[in-house]
């Protein structure tokens, strides 16, 4: 058995660790709350935008006019791009490996061709670089307070690759936030845009366009992509914090258990030492007699 001094030292270090994990848990909890609020706050915009596009989906677009909107063109998919959204940091339990496992399955099996990775988040970039995938762009260190403006360059990379015909489809890979205990890796196609089904209301409308339909759609469609990426980014931020919060709570709990185990062995060791000393003293006394 280890000496009491050694055990005391271990108890001290485990306590220190548990202080850190508890602090990280609390930080993650408060950031999670903020991130959740942001997810909720961003929903109306994306819902309205989807409705608007659905309303407009009723407009007949013939093949010739369709060519004007490259974002709507379906091509035979030879090469794809994937926007991989991951946290920048670890200590998130199984979250990172779950996303990365899902991402590798997509790259190896589902994409059916070469995949170019646009990495948003350091973990995804590191993983893809390590596994020798082609990472064409990297965006990391965006922090919690991303705005729509911040993601424009990220979306721009994917959009221009698609419009230039370098890739034939663009996917989004991110961790969807279900609740604090559950985050699901999602793979979701964003380009070419699959036009949402027209609502029953939207079908008959004769819209006036200002300045003209093409100009409106040309603004609306990229915005639609941006909003989807933005929403995914907010969700994965919420996922990251909730995963970290749970992981840190478990770590704190483990530390607590460890401390109580160690205290028990400390007491035993101390007891044994005292017993031994008493035995030695009485043995010594016996010898002297």
């Amino acid at each position: 058995m280890a000496s009491p001094r050694e055990i005391r030292r271990r108890i001290r270090s485990v306590r220190n660790i548990s202080q850190i994990t508890r602090a990280m848990e609390m930080v993650a909890a408060s950031r999670l709350r903020r991130a959740q609020n942001r997810v909720v706050a961003s929903r109306p915009y994306s819902e309205r935008l989807r409705d608007m596009i659905a309303d407009l989906a009723a407009i007949e677009i013939d093949a010739e006019a369709l060519a004007q909107f490259p974002l709507l063109t379906q091509r035979e998919v030879k090469k794809t791009a994937a926007i991989l959204i991951t946290p920048d940091k670890g200590l998130t339990g199984a979250l990172n490996s779950n996303i990365l496992r899902r991402a590798s399955r997509f790259v190896l099996n589902e994409a059916g061709g070469p995949v170019e990775i646009v990495a948003a988040g350091r973990k995804g970039r590191d993983f893809m670089v390590r596994s020798r995938q082609s990472v064409v762009a990297e965006f990391s260190g965006m922090g919690d307070n991303v705005s729509l403006d911040d993601i424009r360059p990220l979306v721009g990379v994917a959009l221009s690759a698609f419009v230039a015909g370098e890739v034939d489809a663009v996917y989004l890979i991110y961790a969807r936030f279900v609740n604090t205990l559950q985050q699901v890796p999602e793979v979701h196609q964003i380009l070419p845009i699959v036009r949402p089904e027209a609502g029953a209301e939207g079908t008959y409308r004769d819209y006036i366009f200002e300045p003209n339909p093409a100009a409106v759609l040309n603004e609306l469609l990229p915005r639609y992509i941006e909003v989807q990426v933005y929403q995914a980014l907010l969700e994965s931020i919420a996922s990251e914090h909730s995963a970290r919060m749970v992981a840190m709570r478990n770590a704190s709990q483990n530390a607590k258990d460890l401390v109580s185990d160690l205290s028990l062995s400390l007491n035993k060791a101390r007891q044994a030492l005292i017993t031994q000393e008493v035995a030695e003293i009485s043995a010594g006394a016996n010898v002297g007699r």
């Binding site: 608007m52 409308r205 006036i208 366009f209 200002e210 300045p211 100009a215 409106v216 603004e219």
Partner: peptide
């Protein structure tokens, strides 16, 4: 009672 409209 405005006519349906979409504008930038």
């Amino acid at each position: 009672h405005h006519a349906p409209l979409v504008t930038l």
